[in-house]
Amino acid sequence: MSTQLNGAQTFDKNKLTKIVFSDDTMQTVQKMMKRYPEGKHKSALLPILHIAQAEFGGWLSPETMDYVASVLNIKPIEVYEVASFYSMYNLKPVGKCLLEVCRTSSCWTRGAEDVVKHLEKKLGIKEGETTKDGMFTIKTVECLGSCGSAPMLQCGASYHENLTLEKVDALLENYRKAGKQRSYTDLDYKNTL
């Protein structure tokens, strides 16, 4: 068990200065906090973590989490507890494109394992690893509510469904060409590939 969060952690103030929401983002964040009754702004933690993850390199470093804690005025441990509970928060750096392939029953029956194997061969990495150029990470995940269009994978906000190996190839090519970091909060889901 990797206990990245456990035990001694040095708190580096210099690093902290780099982790600050832009004014624009800060406005969104503050608007979000107003959705909840007086004193219940901790409710905004999950959505804000998504934003922080998208803004600060696709993962939640301890510094990022401490920063979110300070924004919400809660204890850092409260953020750690939450960030480590949910599967969409990356506690370690990942590639720009995190390819999340569903492996549960409906997808499995329609060839999800082939998709994973194909990705592994194509990218020369194993599930859970990141390509050397930092472009792709392969991850297998549980049902994403797309069972009727299996097999499928998610990358950022986009669902890629009814996959064939050719589709997977085209996908990788397009993502590589675009070269962008993909996040769940991406708005350009409509013009996906």
């Binding site: 068990m1 206990t3 969060l5 456990n6 708190f11 301890p62 204890k75 441990i77 480590s84």
Partner: peptide, 19 residues
């Protein structure tokens, strides 16, 4: 409180965040 439960399921662990 510095102490909390991290991760989930049978991977859960008690943790503190600074020494």
């Amino acid at each position: 409180r510095f102490q909390g439960m991290l991760f989930r399921g049978d991977a859960s662990e008690i943790s503190t965040y600074i020494e």
